[in-house]
Amino acid sequence: MTYDVIVIGGGPAGLSGAVALGRALRAVLVIDSGAPRNAPAEGIHNYLTRDGMRPAEFLAAGREEVRRYGGTVLDGEVTAARGGLEGGFTVELADGSAHQAKRLLVTTGLKDQLPDIPGLAEQWGQTLLHCPYCHGYEVRGRSIGVIAVNERAPEQARLWGQWSPDVQIIPGGDIAAVEPKGVRLKDGTFVARDALVIAARVAARAEFLVTLGLEVAEHPSGAGTHVPAVDPTGRSAVPGVWVAGNVADPMAQVISSAAAGLQAGAMINVDLIED
């Protein structure tokens, strides 16, 4: 079948957009790779009535809502997207299957580009954090170490100082390993910290968009790359393709990503009506 919309990415933005489209009686397919960026976190925050909810529980509830309104959720990795408004879009998956749609909503999120420091990836989302609005309250008043890997470290130190008076910058080049309660320096010294912070660059999950002629760009914040929207509704530079959530806005949190997905879904429905 040809779907009205294929949503690529089943995070907050994608699921929210799919629910909006399902409630508009559209045939929707959500394709998700099952690798959410916030999977290691103990819970989501700043989402009214859902504070502290585990990411996996949140996504499971979102998938159920999509299905409640007639949508289909498929586990799979998108490798390419082709076509356009004239003959529709084809989305190709790693398993060799392909699916067709009249419109696309891309909500694939980001990849964190973590430095190659032993133990760092294992602590990511646990004692190693990145967003004070997401995790600052949970480590308030405790000792925090900012791992400096780029010019954003002083900015991060000032920001995290809102939550703790004990913030220390630790040069990333001096670190031999990240451990659960601090860092081991190359000279053998152990720097104890209750929590660690890193402002690593992020990259949009958008490799498959090259076949559509849609390219990533540097985000104005300097945080990394994104797929720019050409208007506030999430419309991309390629007609018929919308972007929402972290793939378009690296600074968006869960609740704002969900809101962006809702808006994009509503605008896609309007676009289909006008067509």
Rank of each mutant, 00 (worst) to 15 (best):
G11A: 12
L25A: 14
R26F: 05
L29A: 02
L29S: 00
V30A: 01
D32P: 09
P36T: 11
R37E: 13
N38G: 07
P40A: 12
P40Y: 08
N46V: 08
D51R: 01
G52W: 07
F58M: 07
A61G: 08
G71E: 02
T72L: 05
G76K: 09
T79N: 12
G84Y: 03
L85N: 12
L85A: 12
T90F: 03
G96L: 12
A98R: 10
H99S: 12
H99D: 10
Q100D: 05
Q100T: 00
R103S: 01
L104S: 03
D112E: 14
L114P: 08
P118H: 04
P118G: 10
L120S: 02
W124V: 02
G125E: 13
Q126E: 13
L128N: 13
L128Y: 10
C131T: 06
G136S: 10
Y137M: 13
I144A: 02
V149R: 04
E151M: 04
E151C: 07
R152P: 01
P154D: 09
E155Q: 13
E155W: 08
Q156Y: 07
Q156R: 07
Q156M: 13
Q156S: 12
A157C: 09
I170P: 03
E179A: 15
P180Q: 13
P180F: 12
K181I: 08
G188Y: 04
V191Q: 14
D194V: 11
D194W: 06
L196G: 04
A199P: 05
R201S: 13
V202H: 09
A203M: 10
A204K: 03
R205Q: 15
L209V: 11
V210E: 15
T211D: 14
L214P: 11
E215I: 08
H219V: 02
S221C: 04
G224T: 06
G224Q: 02
P228Y: 00
V230E: 12
G234M: 04
R235C: 07
V238G: 06
G240F: 01
V241M: 00
A244Q: 09
M251W: 04
Q253V: 03
V254K: 00
S256C: 06
S257G: 10
A258Q: 10
A259C: 07
A260E: 00
G261V: 00
M267K: 11
I268F: 08
I268R: 01
V270W: 05
